[in-house]
Design a protein around this nucleic acid. Structure first.
Lengths: 337, 337
DNA sequence: CTGAAAGCGCTAACAG
DNA sequence: CTGTTAGCGCTTTCAG
């Protein structure tokens, strides 16, 4: 680069001091006389000195960087989580490097490796849909790097976890449908293995069972977690001999796809089919009718997850190996069910 | 940290080689015999060796990290831009550290400093609303760090810039209103000094003038860039003796505020008042009626901005000092006007 | 082909 | 109070 950046040595030279003296002065070390400190500090300012954190990190064997891996940054939920993470990281003078996996397990693994190489102080992950094993995460931990999962966690990894109560949230949603008199309740479920997909499906089943309703296999259709998947799911459900009366979608994007397909067919919500989502994405309250959904608090989740990670970075204790923090959900009643 | 990470020295020791030999072998240096390379590489794998990028960066005097500063990550537009940035950064083996300014000029400055300290390879910024001077950015450049602005740029800084044609976009929007027969067209404008606010206001004025319409000062109300600001703006406009027939909002969040306030008053869109936004946030197409707005392509913007920055990092040329890339906008006609 | 020496910028421990 | 020495993990240059 054109302009070489100024170092402690440059300051030292100009002041005819040793560079370690300058280093100490800059960090306000008690050894150094106020007079010298002042000279050093003002020259540093004049020269626009910026301490080289790279060198500091190498020396200290520690960085102030948090690594975050999410499936996609372009996503209401995750961007809010990241925002929460950045917020607490900033307050504790940490930087946040953000990576997206695009739901690819390989890309996730690559990111994990570069985060290790960059010796980040800790890592926050919401697991990609295609990730089936926790091996990569355990490898990260073996490098001594603290790990916290949020939202989508890995069951076979002992780490910090911040989740919403997906099971209870799903139960609330489905129980509400039952209480409203619906009986043929379908579930646009997740095909894969994310923790959230599994737990919400379990919640759906639990609610039915608890009310003594039969679980009809044909009413559970499997797909991904995106809007398109909702469209597909809805088509399958509407093709059934006996159409469902209500649909519980695994998340809001899927609910949106379902919503669009229902409307596309000229059917009424909730008149012909009731619909409940999960997530309370911003969009959901603007649909017509507005979507009844289970509210999560992504910004909150981000803050809690980052705090947990920072705690683990500061003092890694055996006890907190598998600490789990559960964020409560709330069923937001709107007009789609 | 518990497990000390393995270094070239560890590998060297076990193989009874010098550590520099290992270093070379790992980087596939022609000096080294295939046999040794193989021994080294397999042991490295076995020991789960991860090269220390910190050390590498210190030695090479260069990092593979891009710094990004946005007003807020939790924002449709910015999160899509960041996603685009991360995407191209990933493809070029760069990391992305993301910072939010919360529209605060001081926080922006602090982030800028830590990015300098971290010796990032380059910086991408969308300027905070409260930033009035480009001094901090010029300071960054003086450290030899390439800079690219996107969306909200700093006029008094020579840097790469990726913007949408705000002026033309606003003109399209307002001209469309005029062509649709509206005459009393108001503008929910931005009070501050962001480039986008200014240009869109200019576009509004230009369109009126070009059609020979008078610019009525009382029809331009000033505020911030958030939803609440739209509510406030709308209240002011509805309090006027002669209510406007149409409102052009500086951006979609503001348009949303306006939308809510209009509906809140029981007025019809576009029957009583027509409404046009700017940005085409996801939400906008789901409003009832869906919002007519000027489409930007944030993901595209992110990709273009990152590519421009990477180009500048690779070969800083005098010529491209103030290169500007303009992303075309498109007026999306929906039902609010 | 392999080894040795030097140095990136900083801090910590110790000596003067 | 200030200076010296050493070393973080890596790469580069120059010897062997």
């Amino acid at each position: 680069m054109a302009t070489k950046q100024v170092t402690v040595k440059d300051i030292a030279k100009r002041l005819r001091l040793h560079y370690t003296t300058v280093s100490k002065a800059l960090r306000d070390h008690p050894d150094i006389s106020p007079a010298t400190k002042h000279r050093v500090v003002s020259l540093a300012e004049e020269l626009d000195y910026h301490p080289n954190s790279i060198a500091k990190s190498l020396k200290n064997q520690a960085t102030s960087t948090l690594g975050v891996i999410v499936p996609s940054i372009r996503n209401d939920f995750f961007s809010a989580v990241i925002s929460g993470i950045e917020e607490v990281a900033y307050g504790r003078e940490f930087n946040t490097v953000v990576c997206q996996s695009n739901e690819s397990s390989e890309r996730e693994a690559i990111h994990l490796n570069t985060l290790i190489s960059n010796r980040v102080a800790g890592v926050l992950v919401s697991v990609a849909q295609t990730t089936t094993s926790g091996a990569r995460f355990r490898a990260l931990q073996r490098q001594g790097i603290p790990l916290v999962f949020f939202d989508r966690v890995c069951a076979d990894v002992e780490a910090g976890k911040v989740v919403v109560d997906d099971h209870a949230g799903a139960m609330k949603a489905v129980r509400y449908l039952i209480d409203s008199g619906y009986r043929r309740i379908a579930h646009a479920a997740e095909q894969g293995n994310t923790s959230v997909g599994r737990e919400r499906r379990r919640g759906y089943v639990s609610a039915l069972e608890q009310s003594g309703l039969a679980v009809d296999r044909e009413l559970i259709v499997y797909g991904g977690l995106q809007e398109e998947d909702g469209v597909t799911a809805c088509r399958k459900l509407l093709a059934l001999d006996r159409r469902p009366e209500a649909i519980f979608a695994v998340n809001d994007p899927v609910a949106l796809g379902v919503y669009k397909e229902i409307r596309h067919r000229g059917l009424e919500i909730p008149g012909d089919i009731a619909l409940v989502g999960f997530g309370d994405n911003t969009l959901s309250s603007y649909l017509d009718p507005p979507l009844t959904t289970v509210k999560q608090s992504p910004y909150e989740i981000g803050k809690v997850a980052a705090s947990m990670l920072l705690r683990r970075i500061k003092g890694p204790t055996r006890r907190m190996a598998s600490e789990v923090e559960v964020i409560e959900t709330e069923l937001v009643l709107r007009e789609s069910a």
